[in-house]
Design a protein around this nucleic acid. Structure first.
Lengths: 190, 190
DNA sequence: CTCGTTATATACTATACAGTATATAATTCG
DNA sequence: CGAATTATATACTGTATAGTATATAACGAG
């Protein structure tokens, strides 16, 4: 055939993701990306298209990872309560200062002022998907909750707490505070 | 003395705020601001300094407004429960699609990837201040809650829900969903 | 009215940036 | 080996942008 590429596209997407995550889409220049990945601009363009297209690929990959993990944890847990508790607990490092304070790429992008329609669509689909996982699991185990339990409202509230803690992650709070907040969220599951 | 300025600084700050709010700090150009305000760049610089300084003034003004309103509502309500319910209810238009879907300028800026230390400091102070108002009010009326009620954790959780709904506001949800989420938050106050 | 002072308008500069044209290197297939 | 093909490197282009220099307009004090 011809000259093979000298890089693994997925690795490059992960490196680009870290830059976008840290600096935001609007705050990231192509030179930032070339510096982080070692690729030249023509290589970037040949492999991923322009800045928007690259970012969409990064975002899709990020979303797929989070959703995949959520599907496994939320669907496989022994009960809705325990499954959701486990899922939330996994975010403690991200929401506290332990794992940097970048928060969530999707949340960051959501409020970045990016007007691109495709970006909005995917974030919306991501939010819908996560909330649906929660809602479906809560509905499935509905018998375990009180009569006035509202799976839809609780699922949405958990989403709000999740996203809110991702914003507050920027302040690098202590892990104990994050855990205490998730404990409060769990009080809604009864 | 000399030629008086032809504009009201506070009005200009409000117009600039709307641009930053919509497009983000990094996504806003000075030309966007001059277009929105009708001022020329030299006038902007003379009155407010450079883009960073202007933004800090905008942010301070925004924060002062929100905090001022929160102080009144949260401290004056007949009970902690009722006060916080009223305060949250006031955000329904902002958090649903009713009043645009810009969310909260402070939340947007928090995750914008802006590295400026001053910006971070003010957002942190703003978050602390709001949470403190909630916490103090909850502590003051502590007798009205159950024995295991934890004012600090609940205050932080309400903050998370507030910020989370400001993120989800970008998806322009229905007002009923927002109200249902605040209702869930109120369940933590018992 | 005239002068001093401060605001505004126009036009400019330097730089950063997204994206590309052209040249060169590496690989496979014949 | 050589030709075809695809990747990479270098260097460039055009534009948007933050910030400014210079000129002019509007006001108050005397």
């Amino acid at each position: 055939m011809a000259r093979p590429r000298s890089f693994d596209p997925d690795e490059v997407l992960d490196l680009a993701r870290d830059v976008f995550w840290l600096k935001g889409f609007q705050g990231t220049s192509l030179d930032d990306i070339t510096a982080a990945t070692g690729l030249t601009k023509p290589s970037l363009y040949a492999a991923f298209g322009d800045k928007n297209a690259l970012f969409l690929k990064v975002l899709d990959r990020y979303h797929a990872y989070i959703v995949g993990k959520a599907e496994r944890i939320i669907n496989d847990g022994p009960s809705a309560r325990e499954a959701i508790r486990r899922w939330l607990t996994g975010f403690v490092p991200r929401c506290s200062g332990v794992k940097g304070s970048r928060g969530c790429l999707s949340v960051n992008t959501s409020v970045d002022g990016v007007t691109e329609q495709e970006v909005r669509k995917r974030i919306q689909a991501f939010n819908r998907k996560l909330e649906q996982l929660l809602r479906d699991r809560l509905r499935a185990d509905r018998a375990q909750f009180a009569d006035d339990f509202d799976p839809d409202a609780v699922a949405h509230t958990i989403m709000a707490i999740y996203q809110g803690l991702m914003v507050l992650a920027k302040d690098a709070p202590e892990a104990a505070r994050v855990r205490a907040t998730f404990d409060q969220a769990m009080k809604l599951l009864s």
